[in-house]
Amino acid sequence: MNGTPHLWWPTALLALVLLGDALLSLRPPAFIQRCLDGVGFPRDWWWVLVVVKLLAAGGLLAGLALPGVALTANTGVIAYFVCAAYAHYRARFLGQEFWFNCLGMLALSTAVLALSHAV
């Protein structure tokens, strides 16, 4: 084992999805705005989510060549969406945005970890 993903394409797919999410978050459409407002995330801090998602996508892509980086980035993405799920739960904002956006991304990032790094 060299520390890079066994399968490259799930990691690349997650990076692409996060890049798209970050680009969408630059000028958030209504469904992203509802999500962030629904959990009470301050609008002054929305830019931080763009930076985090761009860094995560970059880490995933860098990890295709650098041992351990993709695993670390993928784990960080999972932690991010676990925190997002907890924020939804605490705010009692459990509508479509929670099930599709938040838990969907948590499921995708967990599946990528399992597919790409399981022995």
Rank of each mutant, 00 (worst) to 15 (best):
M1S: 14
M1Y: 09
N2Q: 12
N2I: 04
N2D: 14
G3S: 01
T4Y: 00
P5E: 01
L7R: 03
L7D: 08
W8I: 13
W9E: 11
T11K: 02
T11G: 00
T11S: 05
A12N: 07
A12D: 09
A12G: 04
A12E: 12
L13Y: 13
V17F: 12
V17I: 12
L18C: 05
G20E: 10
D21H: 12
A22I: 01
L23Y: 13
L24N: 08
S25R: 03
R27V: 15
P28M: 01
P29S: 08
A30E: 13
A30M: 15
F31A: 10
I32M: 14
Q33R: 14
R34F: 14
C35W: 13
L36W: 13
L36N: 12
L36E: 12
G38Q: 13
V39N: 00
V39S: 04
G40S: 10
F41G: 05
P42T: 15
D44L: 14
W45M: 11
W46G: 02
W46L: 03
W46M: 04
W47H: 10
W47R: 09
V48E: 09
V50M: 06
V51I: 11
V51L: 08
L54Q: 06
L55T: 01
L55H: 00
A56D: 07
G59C: 04
L60H: 03
A62H: 04
G63R: 01
L64G: 00
L64I: 01
A65E: 11
L66C: 07
P67E: 02
P67C: 00
G68W: 04
A70C: 01
A70S: 00
A70Y: 02
L71P: 05
T72G: 01
N74E: 15
T75A: 08
V77F: 05
Y80T: 04
F81D: 01
F81N: 01
V82A: 07
V82M: 04
V82L: 08
V82N: 06
V82R: 03
A84E: 11
H88K: 00
H88C: 02
Y89G: 09
A91W: 11
R92T: 09
F93V: 06
F93R: 05
L94I: 05
G95Y: 09
Q96N: 13
W99V: 00
W99S: 02
F100R: 14
N101F: 14
N101Y: 15
N101E: 15
L103F: 10
G104H: 10
G104R: 12
L106E: 10
L108C: 10
L108A: 11
T110E: 10
V112K: 02
L113P: 06
L113A: 12
A114K: 11
L115V: 09
L115T: 08
L115N: 06
H117F: 09
H117A: 04
A118Y: 15
A118K: 08
V119A: 15
V119M: 13
